[in-house]
């Protein structure tokens, strides 16, 4: 079992002599282990609830097995925890459903997300699964930036969207399922295509 030292924390220990910092151990599905500070974990609602429910002491953290995160691999988890450590202590944005969502991608995040699209996909998925609101925001913003100003043909290439034939197959499947909602979507979509995508609804 390898131990990843991904979340490097630059802390002046002398400056905080009283409070003993607690680190939790997590293990990815490919058996990579990470030590993550308690404060960084707070960025993830899912993990924060998990560790609160477990009620581990410092001794438990060292003596018990690392907490397994079975559906995220080590490469992705490393990015997630790097992000959490960098942004630890920051306020977690509350999604009150308001629009527009104004999100700027900080330099650190931009560098962190300078990765291939496969890994970016996993990062978004992990941010969603672990409920890390701001990481989900910046990663989704990055994907959204790919779509801005592109034609439908370009979007099909960028997002590898299904061809008309594949869409036809989906349509037939929907009709076969006799789902009234699918028929409604189908009708709307055909109307939109006829309009050429210049307006919506």
């Amino acid at each position: 079992m390898s131990v990843e030292n991904a979340p490097v924390v630059d802390v002046d220990e002398a400056a905080i002599p009283v409070e003993k910092k607690m680190y939790y151990r997590f293990e990815s599905n490919d058996k990579k282990e990470f030590r993550v500070s308690e404060l960084a974990i707070q960025q993830s609602e899912t993990l924060n609830r998990l560790v609160e429910a477990m009620g581990y002491t410092s001794e438990d953290v060292e003596n018990k097995p690392a907490i397994a995160i079975e559906n995220i691999d080590g490469k992705t988890l490393k990015l997630v925890f790097q992000w959490c450590e960098h942004h630890k202590g920051e306020a977690i944005p509350v999604d009150d459903g308001s629009v527009p969502k104004i999100v700027e991608i900080p330099e650190f995040d931009a560098k962190l997300m300078d990765i291939d699209n496969g890994l970016l996909f996993k990062l978004i998925w992990a941010a969603d699964y672990l409920n890390i609101v701001q990481l989900l925001n910046v990663s989704c913003k990055k994907v959204a930036n790919m779509a801005q100003g592109k034609t439908p043909a370009q979007l099909r290439r960028v997002y590898l969207l299904p061809s008309d034939e594949e869409d036809e197959a989906a349509k037939r499947a929907a009709q076969e399922a006799q789902d009234p909602r699918a028929r409604e979507v189908e009708e709307e979509f055909e109307e939109r295509k006829r309009q050429g995508g210049n307006s919506f609804f």
Partner: peptide, 22 residues
């Protein structure tokens, strides 16, 4: 979440790409 950051014109174009995107 991604679409929330996409402007209207780009949404229109994405919306005609597939039924799921619509």
């Amino acid at each position: 979440e991604v679409v929330k950051y996409v402007d209207y014109k780009s949404r229109c174009k994405l919306g005609v790409c597939s039924r799921k995107d619509h």
